[in-house]
Design a protein around this nucleic acid. Structure first.
Length: 618
RNA sequence: GGGCCUCUAGCUCAGUCGGUAGAGCAUCGGACUUUUAAUCCGCUGGUCCAGGGUUCGAGCCCCUGGGGGCCCA
């Protein structure tokens, strides 16, 4: 427990609105808590409410890497709320950004979308078959469904709405008026040496590049390369508004063709008359104070919004950690708008095990909904809560998910026994609950590994599944498959879509006639004994069609064949062990065409007596 | 060219404020009528990348070098 933080929380609580009277006795102690300490202190210093922000660009599927942009502020805001202090988590949908390129490999999308490049994402049609109004709406809705499942509470802001409603007009006019000053700030980051100086001393209070050696501007070639890179890259590298004809931090979308292939050619501060020409041939002069068809360039837009929403905390991806990135530049631009750069850790990328780096532009990348099909919301939350933001991690869709679940189940046990460490305890709490409620859990959590094996061999027959599961632990019987959900649903989906072919159990559709014909007399005898018994201790296999009975039967056959009683306890007999193994291999080959497989009693139970008899009878 | 991250057991990784190096898996051994893809217990296993520095004390902090990954120019 961290009494200092509890005191701090209480003190802050007097100044900031208290939303809940239920404050946990136990102060969670992990990286989230430490950031929350900092965020609360900063909000207090500024005399402003706690505002945590995420920015998402619905330019394509919002993938599991982007989810960190949401999870990190969510966890921090949630921790602040756990302390009884109001916290806002806003998600800014950058749906007024230009459509940069057509992502490859998306269903319902073809090359014809290329004609929309340059338009705002909300003006691009959605993929074929989508019920949504626009490209942005389509991918936003897909994402929000998952955010809801994950228990993330937030407030949405559409940048399209903000810009087209004129919410930012004052800020836009301000930025235009101060364009020379903004240009000067940006200019400090446009030279290589300045960039180096800025990066060499992270956290220094001064202005990077200032007072340094005179540095050469980028050459024509370098500038061109930079522009090309910005064209294809993410927000970190985006256009800062510089152009040959002077610097303007505002870019109109052409009122004729709708694209941002425009160049501002003049601006009058007094009248706010802005002239622009577009690559489509159109040019016009508009009154910027009334014009609502354009936006501030990204590097200016972001700091303006920090000020507009009074953001205290907003993380960003590691691509912002380079000298001259929008986050870096924002530190100097935010004060112009009367605010400061928020606290913002750089989070490392999330990978998918066995897959190249995720990129929205590449099309078919796993999105949160994909993960939620094979794991419960708490597990997805756990992945993000247990690692500090600067640690990269991979999400596994293969058999490693069984290990993840084993670890999770082990953690539940440690937590319930009070044996969990502070950080892992915190991660468990954050994964399975938010400030004001618990997330749905599976009432009877059977090991994912075990369920996968049973689901595999029972091929969706839930009566069989219940019967087998029911015999796993007689002391704690499962009475209904519903007790196994939603974990069971995840397992079923995993087995159906992700289980490796070589791990699957495929029961033969008909008898392996060649194998049966080649069997030795002893082997034929063993099969007959398994099916029909030996007339005394072993009876027909159907008579003991339970897990226990079948266990007795499969182990009894080799014993009887070697002169033991079927239920005799035999220890240390190597020959018997070898005979058992040989017998099992024979059965596996005849049943599933492999040398090994799920435990035989389970397998036999799942296959059913008629089919077993059909496959094992010569 | 610049920056960020990372390097700990065979593998994947924890290691919080600087205080005797940990877990899971794998291996190996054992138990359960069981050499099986569901159970449980235990053992083994480390030059914490290298070198230097600060410190009573460094996996952790500082410097230099190396490997790997990523971002930017």
């Amino acid at each position: 427990m961290r009494h200092d933080h509890r005191r701090a929380g209480g003190r802050v609580g007097h100044r900031l609105a208290i939303t809940s009277t239920v404050v946990s006795d136990m102060q969670l102690d992990d990286w989230v808590s430490r950031i929350a300490d900092e965020v609360i202190a900063e909000a207090q210093r500024l005399g402003s409410p706690v505002v945590c922000a995420s920015g998402l660009s619905p330019s394509g599927p919002i993938h599991l890497g982007n989810l960190r942009e949401v999870m990190t502020p969510h966890l921090v805001a949630d921790e602040v709320r756990r302390r009884g202090i109001a916290a806002d988590h806003l998600i800014s949908w950058d749906d007024y950004d230009r459509f940069r390129r057509v992502p490859a490999g998306l269903d319902g999308v073809d090359e014809s979308w290329a004609e929309h490049i340059g338009k705002p994402l909300t003006s691009v049609p959605p993929p074929h078959g989508s019920p949504h109004r626009s490209w942005a709406a389509h991918f936003r809705a897909q994402c929000e469904e998952s955010l809801n499942e994950l228990g993330i509470d937030y407030r949405s802001i559409s940048q399209t709405e903000q810009y087209t409603s004129g919410a930012y007009t004052e800020q836009i006019l301000f930025a235009m008026e101060h364009r020379a000053q903004i240009d000067k700030v940006l200019d400090q980051y446009r030279t290589l040496d300045a960039a180096a100086a800025a990066g060499a001393k992270p956290g220094n209070g001064g202005t990077p590049g200032k007072g340094g050696k005179p540095a050469p501007k980028l050459s024509e070639d370098e500038a061109a390369a930079a522009a090309a890179a910005a064209e294809g890259s993410g927000a970190a590298a985006e256009d800062d508004g510089s152009a040959d004809g002077g610097y303007y931090p505002y870019k109109p979308y052409c009122t004729v063709c709708g694209r941002d292939t425009t160049t501002v050619t003049g601006y009058d501060d007094a009248t706010t008359e802005l002239s622009y020409s577009c690559a489509c041939g159109h040019s016009e002069t508009v009154l910027l104070k009334d014009f609502r068809h354009g936006k501030l360039v990204w590097k200016v837009d972001w700091p303006m919004r920090w000020a507009y929403e009074k953001v205290i905390f907003e993380p960003s991806g590691v691509d912002h950690q380079s000298p001259g990135s929008s986050f870096e530049v924002g530190k100097d631009l935010a004060p112009l708008f009367g605010w400061q750069r928020p606290i913002g850790p750089m989070y490392a990328f999330v990978g998918i095990k066995g897959m190249a780096k995720m990129s929205s532009s590449r099309g078919r990348v796993p999105v949160p909904a994909d993960a939620l099909q094979i794991m419960e919301p708490a597990l997805v939350r756990w992945l993000y809560a247990r690692r500090r933001p600067n640690q990269s991690f991979d999400i596994a869709f293969d058999a490693e998910i069984q290990r993840l679940y084993d670890e999770w189940d082990a953690l539940q046990r440690r937590v319930s026994e009070g044996a969990a460490g502070p950080a892992e305890y915190a991660a468990q709490v954050r994964a399975s609950s938010v400030a004001d409620r618990s997330l749905p859990v599976t009432p009877h959590p059977i090991s994912y590994r075990t369920l996968a094996s049973i689901v595999d061999i029972t091929t969706g027959d839930e009566d069989q599944l219940l019967r087998i599961v029911g015999q796993l632990d007689p002391k704690d019987p499962v009475s209904s498959v519903d007790e196994l959900r939603p974990r069971l649903d995840c397992v079923e989906h995993w087995v159906a879509t992700r289980m490796a072919a070589e791990d699957r159990t495929v029961v033969r559709t008909g008898p392996a006639t060649e194998l049966l014909a080649a069997a030795t007399d002893e082997q034929r005898e063993s099969l007959r004994m398994l099916l029909d018994g030996n007339g005394s201790e072993l009876s027909a296999v159907e008579d003991g069609w339970t897990l226990e009975g079948l266990t007795h039967q499969v182990y009894g056959v080799p014993k009887v064949q070697r002169g033991f009683a079927a239920d005799q306890i035999v220890k240390g007999d190597k020959e018997l062990s070898a005979a058992q193994r040989t017998f099992f291999v024979l059965l596996y080959r005849l049943l599933i065409d492999k040398d090994t497989g799920p435990r035989l009693p389970t397998l036999l139970l799942a296959i059913g007596p008629e089919r077993v008899r059909a496959l094992l009878t010569p």
